[in-house]
């Protein structure tokens, strides 16, 4: 079996373009046998609820994070990406206006009773104008990072409208591939991350790569999955090879086992 690879670069105006241009031309493709094997492995790890597996879980070694609560940091990806999409499509004069419009739409939904309890719209509806402005500032910050990243890409790119999901048959499990920018119609996927890369950043990217391959209707892996840590000025990338997809799948399964053991410990 060939070894997994991890490309490391410093952020610079031409580094992202280089990382994308150097992506292998023929990525690995999954078959039905791969899907059946994954379903068998995850189906064997019992669960009493539907579980969602992603790179975040892999990076935390299967440990469940504290209960989710909305915050400016938690909201910035959704609002920032949405606001940036509006600006790109000419539906807002600027990123700042696009983010403001995203917030106002969610507030309007909440005001008309269409926001679920615990949703972002519901949370925003209970915020003071100054708090909303902070949420907007945080989302604008995110959107500007996406804009700077996009500005350095040479091929066609779009802001991902959603992450990629794959429901694993008979395993009560959904895989999630986080993605922020899709280059060349998703042949290369870019993720933007806060802080600096940890030692588990590589496994995290491989988990995203594997989830994206399973989520693709034809099982086609992205040619390259790129993670950008603008705070640290670091770019990491994994290629869509058999070795990387296998490693990503294996780490997702391991994280599921760790998750299962935690559940058993809590129940004991």
């Amino acid at each position: 079996m060939s070894a997994t690879t991890l490309t490391i670069q410093r952020v610079s105006p031409d580094a992202i373009a280089r990382v994308i241009d150097d992506a292998p031309l023929e990525p690995f493709g999954l078959t039905d046998a791969h899907r059946r094997a994954l379903a068998a492995r995850l189906g064997a790890i019992t669960t009493d609820h539907h579980r969602r597996l992603d790179s975040w879980l892999v990076e935390r070694g299967g440990r469940v994070a504290a209960r989710f609560a909305w915050s400016p940091l938690a909201a910035r990806r959704l609002l920032g990406s949405g606001g940036f999409r509006r600006a790109l499509r000419g539906r807002a004069a600027s990123i700042r206006d696009g983010v403001r419009d995203e917030i106002e739409d969610l507030l309007a939904r909440a005001a008309s009773g269409r926001a679920h309890r615990g949703s972002l719209g519901d949370w925003l509806a209970h915020r003071h104008p100054a708090e909303l402005a902070l949420v907007q500032a945080s989302a604008v910050e995110w959107a500007r990072i996406l804009a700077e990243t996009g500005a350095t890409v040479t091929g066609d790119w779009t802001v991902a409208s959603a992450d990629a999901y794959y429901d694993v048959e008979r395993a009560r499990t959904t895989l999630r591939a986080r993605r922020d920018l899709l280059v060349l119609d998703g042949e290369v996927v870019v993720r933007v991350r806060a802080g600096g890369p940890t030692p588990s950043a590589g496994p995290g990217l491989r988990a995203d790569l594997a989830a994206a391959a399973f989520a693709h209707p034809d099982g086609r892996a992205p040619r390259r999955y790129v993670g950008i840590w603008p705070d640290a000025g670091v770019i990491l990338a994994v290629d869509g090879t058999l070795a990387n997809v296998r490693a990503g799948t294996r780490d997702l399964v391991r994280a599921t086992i760790a998750l299962h053991r935690q559940g058993e410990l809590r129940a004991a």
């Binding site: 700042r96 100054a130 708090e131 402005a133 902070l134």
Partner: peptide, 20 residues
């Protein structure tokens, strides 16, 4: 600074800053 940068109209600086 963050609020001003997104065009927020500051009415009560201390209250706005504290909430943010």
């Amino acid at each position: 600074i963050r609020l001003v940068a997104v065009g927020h109209e500051i009415i009560d600086p201390f209250d706005d800053a504290l909430r943010a």
